[in-house]
Amino acid sequence: MKIGNLELRENPLLLAPMEDVTDPSFRLLCKKYGADLMYTEFVSADALIRSIESTQRKLKIFDEERPVGIQLYGKDIDAMVEAAKIAEEANPELIDINFGCPVKKIATKGAGSGMLKDIPKMVEMTRKIVEAVKLPVTVKTRLGWDESSKIIVEVAEKLQDTGIKALTIHGRTRAQMYNGDADWTLIGEVKNNPRMHIPIIGNGDLTNPKKAKLYLDRYGVDALMIGRPSIGRPWIFKEVRHYLDTGELLELPKIPEHVEMIREHLNNSIDWLGERRGILHMRRHLAITFKGLRDFRDLKIKMLRANTADEVNQCLDEIKETYADCVSIVETMD
């Protein structure tokens, strides 16, 4: 599959952009487990052009994790164009425009999936960003604002006409947020529209290898994007790739392997953010990684209250010893 001049394998697996998740420490881990293309956390155009330090840090990309796309969001066209030029200087493989985030503070202000209520502005913004940068520009969006306005088939053509090089579609409306089942039928309609010639990437509910293959075969998309199911379970990329290539399910890793995975992530996070912030950032991953273990409550509380790397590692050692023969199956909705 090609996105502009970026060449990826057939049916590549993409790590979705997720705020407070897809920083370099997590991206490096997903790359290790087979993600073919990854995205930064959401980058606010307004904050970027004001040179907010925490936002500028999101542009940092390490060679070991490439290829990586920088995802931008904002409601002002001029600000988004300027932000795209700044992001291009960070030398990512592509620029992605966020027209899909459903979070209230973003969508109700007209950014993210809020742009689905103003299609002419969405199209104009996209066209001007495409014209402003030399890198491939892609878009991630949803089916529509709500059940009565699933307009993605029409919108996809308009976006393609602006010159974007790929389109990712999350199979829910903004009103659904992350609730209910993702509707891939409209993603399939976009892919099978004879007017469409850019890669179409499907996203939503890709929680296990069998479902990933089913959706890939049924709807014919060019690539799959995995988001929340990778939190605490970055090896899902390895699972899915193996099943797509062989038709066989990998044996799930046992808890000691989980422990070493999360320890590596912890070390990456501390290297990136420092000990205190790195540990705070890891708490979501720590909780989800060991979800479902029996009699785990007290140890979980102890682990999530740990304030130093030594304390977290002591908890991990205890988990490794106590649950040496256990397998934890983590499935979340994307």
Rank of each mutant, 00 (worst) to 15 (best):
D76L: 10
A87K: 02
L244H: 11
M196S: 05
Y73H: 13
K302G: 06
T246R: 03
K117G: 10
Y178P: 06
A87I: 10
A84E: 09
I106P: 00
M282V: 03
D317I: 04
E64H: 04
T322G: 04
D222P: 03
N192W: 01
M80C: 13
M333A: 08
M333W: 04
L159P: 06
D36C: 10
D222C: 04
R294W: 08
L167C: 00
K150P: 04
M196N: 02
D205Y: 10
D298L: 09
L250K: 14
I236Q: 08
S149Q: 15
M225K: 07
G69D: 05
R57E: 13
A16E: 02
F296I: 03
A45F: 03
I49V: 15
T185S: 14
V327L: 04
G227T: 06
N268K: 12
I236C: 06
H285Y: 15
G112R: 00
I3R: 02
A83E: 10
L266Q: 02
D295M: 12
G114N: 11
I129T: 06
D96A: 04
R276P: 01
I151V: 12
D76Q: 13
L266S: 03
L8S: 09
L293W: 05
F42H: 11
T289Q: 03
G274V: 07
K105G: 02
R305K: 12
K85M: 09
F99R: 01
V327S: 06
P120N: 09
A306G: 14
R297D: 12
K109N: 12
R127V: 07
A182C: 14
A175L: 07
S269V: 03
I201F: 06
L316V: 09
R284Q: 13
K109L: 11
H170G: 07
R284E: 12
L252W: 09
E264M: 12
R174G: 00
D76K: 14
S328G: 13
M1T: 04
V327T: 14
I95N: 01
I97W: 01
W184H: 11
M261D: 08
T40G: 11
S113C: 12
